[in-house]
C-alpha cells in the first residue's frame, strides 16, 4: 500500500505542516474574527432590542398606571362635584321652600286680617242697612215714621241674637 511507503512521508508531513499552519493563520486572523464579530454584533443588536422592548413596556405600563390614576382622580372629583352640587341644590330648594312658606304664611295672615277687617266693616254696615230696612218696614207696615230709638234697640237685639 502506498500508505506504508516511507519515502513519501517527509513530503506529506512537510506540506501538511505548511498548509495546516496556513489554514490556521487564515482562520485565526481572517475568517473567524469576522464571523465572531458578526455574531457578536447580532447578539448585541438582539439584546439591545430586547432591552428597548422591556423599556418601552415599562413606559407603557407607567402610562397606563398614570392614566388609571388620572381616571380615578377625575371620577372622585366628579363624584365630589356632583355631591356638592346636590347638597347646594337641596339647600337652595330648602331655603326657597322656607322662604315661600314664610311668604305664603304672611300673605295668608294678611288675607285673614283683610277678611276680618272686611267682615267687621261689613258687620258695621249691616247695622246701618238693618236700621234702614227695619225703619222702612215699620214705616210701610205702621204707616208712619218709626220710632228710631225702638228700631235701633230691636236691631241691636237682633244682631245680638245673631251673635254679633
Amino acid at each position: 500500500m502506498p500508505q506504508f511507503d516511507p519515502s513519501t512521508f517527509a513530503s506529506q508531513v512537510f506540506w501538511l505542516v505548511i498548509f495546516f499552519a496556513a489554514l490556521y493563520f487564515l482562520m485565526a486572523k481572517l475568517a473567524l474574527p469576522k464571523i465572531g464579530a458578526v455574531l457578536d454584533e447580532r447578539q448585541r443588536k438582539i439584546d439591545d432590542n430586547l432591552d428597548k422592548a422591556a423599556q418601552l413596556k415599562a413606559e407603557a405600563e407607567a402610562a397606563v398606571a398614570a392614566y388609571e390614576k388620572a381616571l380615578a382622580e377625575s371620577r372622585a372629583h366628579a363624584a365630589a362635584v356632583v355631591k356638592e352640587m346636590a347638597e347646594r341644590l337641596a339647600r337652595q330648594a330648602e331655603e326657597r321652600t322656607q322662604e315661600l312658606a314664610a311668604r305664603v304664611a304672611g300673605q295668608i295672615q294678611a288675607g285673614e286680617q283683610r277678611i276680618a277687617a272686611a267682615k267687621s266693616a261689613a258687620l258695621a254696615g249691616m247695622r246701618e242697612v238693618a236700621l234702614d230696612v227695619a225703619g222702612a218696614v215699620v214705616h210701610r207696615l205702621a204707616g208712619g215714621p218709626a220710632d228710631v230709638a225702638a228700631v235701633e234697640a230691636a236691631v241691636a237685639a237682633a244682631l245680638k241674637e245673631q251673635g254679633q
Binding site: 513519501t8 513530503s11 506529506q12 512537510f14 506540506w15 498548509f19 495546516f20
Partner: peptide, 18 residues
C-alpha cells in the same frame, strides 16, 4: 519534499475553506 497530488488537495482545501 516534492509538491504532490496530496499537497495539491491540501492547497485546494485551504483555498476553498478560506
Amino acid at each position: 519534499v516534492s509538491f504532490t497530488n496530496s499537497s495539491l488537495m491540501m492547497a485546494i482545501v485551504v483555498t476553498v475553506t478560506t
